[in-house]
Write a protein that binds this DNA or RNA. Structure first.
Lengths: 344, 344
DNA sequence: TACGTTTGCTTAAACGTATAAGCAATTCTC
DNA sequence: GAGAATTGCTTATACGTTTAAGCAAACGTA
């Protein structure tokens, strides 16, 4: 790579010290009492030589790089890709650039990314934490590294966090089903202690309870992150095959689960909502091609990512930040998959 | 953020110079003739204090940051998100971290991202270039900035580039249709001079020609990036409504176009492939829910991103690199949407 | 004339790292 | 036992930037 022009090059060309050039280019001519003439000349030469500041040098000098680190579960997942996009936009608005990495829900990858980003002196981190990563997060707190958790959090660790109203959203969804006559409502969720899942499951249970329905443990199916596709397929089969005790409605805790479930349901020729009511957490392009429109909970991804960046930047800029929990309201988009249950 | 431990801190604790610490931690004790004892002590203290090197300082020193800049059209588009994921993996394998940004197919955003990344001293750039950005790319060549174009290139600018076999892939697809009895084959593509589109369109035309079919200009519809959804919908209507002269098959030049087209086709109750044969460039999750399986060209995204990173790193590491064009073969995944045309 | 103030610049130090060069003290060589 | 070679460390400098401090020269005031 051809050497870029530095302040030194300008200084030599004009015949002044680098200090003077720096003052001028930073608009500090007043404080530094730089002469009108010479200032003009410096600016002209800088423009002519197409000077661009070396942000690495500046980063070293100031101890801040105007860079954020983003750690998501998997950037190729449309959900996280969309968050990433909004984060990019909001970061840019504030003069930040974003480094990214995917943790694959794995502890070691998460730790590696954190280390890599910190070694690169990012000013802060936006993290969708991995199950069991409390100690990693605690360490960030100890080191006073500015960070914000997004999409999920921990019950037992107080942090900056921006999440959807998981409990209430799921509660409303299930309540809608009970109101519409469904009584045996199953849920498929990821098997993780992370709050977003736990809250959704609790919302589901609370809605059942408030509708006077006794929760049955076989209605709750937890699938592992790895191999979830296979597990969802077999789960659907099991939940529907037990003809006598089959569920009459299902809620899916994420859109990835929903898509897989829809495939299985499609293959089994189950009629929605006649044979099976259905609501999804999060949307998917695929819903539009299912023969019935799907009712789903729409998270406000835009607001989540904006708030995450804003919360992080606020933390970066304050000397004694207090931990902030932001809950972003979602809404239900009505389709026909949750229609009033018909009597057979 | 709490101050991180530096080489200086270690030096003070051990009671030696920073130079010695640096030698030891870089495994240069031999060359620097550091005593066995003191080396051990330095390593121990470094480990105890949990020393992590400041890569910003190193970057300033060496003029390389082990960082790559990735500029895609839109990270929230699953196609680019998947590329980003693979690039992340391959970069990591080689010790690089990735900055990313979305150009939105806009010249100014593209230029901004290039500037931002260069000011941050990235070692190289991976770019999906925007239409009309030749001068931006030429400037990179002038400055000897290592870079590689991905997914698309320019006819008139020689660069490192990694692309799919666009012409041949589309040629094969259309040939399949002609072989199966379709004669009036339309194509919907993006309105851009970028090579990936032009090559696909040329492949389409060449296949028609070789099948002895005279291309009709109304069969080729180019939609703008902005507002493409609306344009695709109206296009589908036009192409199918002209009952006497309607097309009997359609190829779509990207998956985003395909998805929109399928929605329109779905809405119009067109039977595929009986009323209309169909092939898509790239796949989509949504295909699985269309009532007919869709024939599509499957790009090898994995190989594209790997090759892009490798090509870039090779350029970074060589003093007088030569421009390399890599064409990655795709394959056709057969569905029923391109089945032998039935006589009516 | 003498002294204080203002003007316009330079010098020096710092951020954290790497490494060439230098300098004693010790050991080797004959 | 004197010079050469080796050992084990430190000093100095550099990367590109910022900014406090310093220093002449010019100017103002009595």
């Amino acid at each position: 790579m051809t050497k870029r022009v530095s302040i030194k090059d300008i200084a030599e060309k004009v015949g002044v010290s680098t200090a003077l050039v720096s003052y001028v280019l930073n608009g500090k001519e007043r404080e530094a009492r730089v002469g009108e003439e010479i200032a003009k000349k410096v600016r002209k030469v800088a423009a002519d030589m197409n000077y661009q500041p070396n942000l690495i040098a500046r980063g070293l000098k100031f101890g801040r790089t105007k860079t954020l680190g983003l750690i998501v579960a998997d950037i190729s997942n449309p959900f996280f890709a969309m968050l990433a996009r909004n984060i990019e936009l909001e970061a840019q608005k504030n003069g930040y650039t974003v480094l990214f990495g995917s943790s694959d829900e794995q502890l070691d990858k998460s730790q590696n990314l954190i280390n890599t980003f910190l070694n690169r002196q990012v000013d802060g981190l936006i993290i969708t934490p991995v199950a069991g990563s409390q100690s990693q997060i605690e360490e960030l707190k100890t080191k006073n590294v500015p960070f914000v958790l997004m999409d999920r959090g921990f019950k037992d660790v107080e942090t900056n966090v921006v999440i959807t109203d998981n409990h209430d959203a799921m509660y409303s969804a299930v309540k809608l089903l009970t109101k519409n006559g469904y009584r045996k409502i199953g849920i498929i969720a990821y098997d993780t202690p992370l709050t977003h899942m736990q809250d959704r499951i609790q919302g589901y249970k609370d809605a059942l309870k408030d509708a006077g329905i006794r929760f049955q443990s076989k209605w709750l199916v937890k699938v592992p992150f790895q191999d979830y596709k296979k597990h969802v397929a077999t789960t659907i089969a099991q939940l529907l095959d037990a003809t006598s005790n089959a569920v009459d409605a299902l809620v899916f805790a994420t859109n990835s689960i929903s898509v897989q479930a829809l495939k299985a349901i499609h293959a089994k020729n189950v009629r929605v909502p006649d044979d099976l009511g259905m609501i999804s957490f999060d949307e998917s392009d695929t819903f539009e091609f299912f023969y019935t429109s799907i009712t789903y909970i729409k998270q406000n991804l835009n607001e989540i990512s904006e708030k995450a960046v804003q919360s992080l930047i606020k933390t970066i800029n304050s000397t004694h930040p207090k931990m902030l929990k932001v809950v972003v309201p979602s809404k239900i988009v009505l389709g026909q998959s949750s229609n009033q249950k018909k009597l057979k």
